[in-house]
């Protein structure tokens, strides 16, 4: 299989980047996208060129480390898939692909396709937890949780923190990411106690990091690898305005 790749190359956060073009004509349709880049990198290194820096770790769509934009698709042209779960069978032989990093003010580019998403950690630090110390917990079955509530909390908690929601948003809003955590914890009886404080401080940190506001275009849900629903944003807003 043949592909022409236009890949965003940027030396460091402060330098200017540009697309560079690479031709590959010995690809296998079962290769994943990161495996294609591994293959290209091996060639580049041997030609004494700088290999392409890209994030990727678990390669099974759960660690949230990978992700870039392929022909304008966040992560992947496939629905609810991460970049690492995207295989070349998703493309046509001879196709041209443009690969570029997730773009948002709050996600500075480190090098090429690698970005810095620590802003998301700083949002979690402002209350994305239940304040329980080790040793304080009561017997697990003393907290009953309705099956459907537990499932809904799980749906929200399944966020992998990849930042696709931010990259897909015309305002670069982290509303879906933030809402998923707020909703996960607010749904559970254990998390209700701190719900109000949590939503206020997490939302304020989200704004401080330079993420934009949510204007409800629903683009984030469409690209989220875990298919997290924008209904959690509604929950977040409701929690925010609660007294």
């Amino acid at each position: 299989m043949k592909l022409t790749l236009h890949i965003w190359r940027q030396e460091s956060p402060r330098t200017k980047g540009k697309f560079e073009t690479y031709f590959l004509n010995d690809l296998d349709t079962h290769m994943s996208v990161p495996e294609m880049l591994d293959h290209l990198n091996e060639k580049l290194i041997k030609e004494e060129k700088d290999p392409i820096a890209f994030d990727s770790d678990c390669r099974e769509g759960i660690c949230g480390q990978c992700g870039f934009v392929i022909n304008g698709h966040i992560h992947s042209p496939e629905k609810h898939a991460t970049t690492c779960q995207t295989h070349l069978r998703s493309f046509k032989d001879g196709e041209e692909l443009f690969l570029e990093p997730f773009r948002a003010k709050a996600f500075p580019i480190k090098k090429d396709l690698c970005i810095d998403r620590t802003a998301l950690d700083r949002i979690i630090a402002k209350g994305g937890y239940i304040s329980v110390n080790t040793g304080q917990a009561p017997e697990a079955n003393s907290i009953l949780i309705n099956h459907d509530t537990a499932e809904a909390a799980f749906d929200a908690a399944s966020c992998i923190g990849c930042g696709a929601c931010v990259a897909s948003c015309k305002n670069a809003s982290a509303a879906l990411f933030t809402a998923a955590k707020i909703s996960h914890l607010a749904l559970l009886p254990q998390g209700k106690m701190e719900a109000n404080k949590r939503v206020k401080s997490m939302v304020s940190q989200m704004d401080m990091e330079g993420f934009g506001a949510c204007s409800f275009t629903e683009a984030c849900e469409a690209v989220c690898p875990q298919g997290i629903s924008i209904s959690h944003i509604v929950t977040m807003n409701r929690e925010f305005w609660k007294e």
């Binding site: 239940i130 329980v132 917990a137 697990a140 907290i143 909390a153 254990q190 998390g191």
Partner: peptide
């Protein structure tokens, strides 16, 4: 298990 449930593990 108690600890994890208290932390909100669903």
């Amino acid at each position: 298990i108690d600890q994890a449930v208290a932390q909100g593990v669903p």
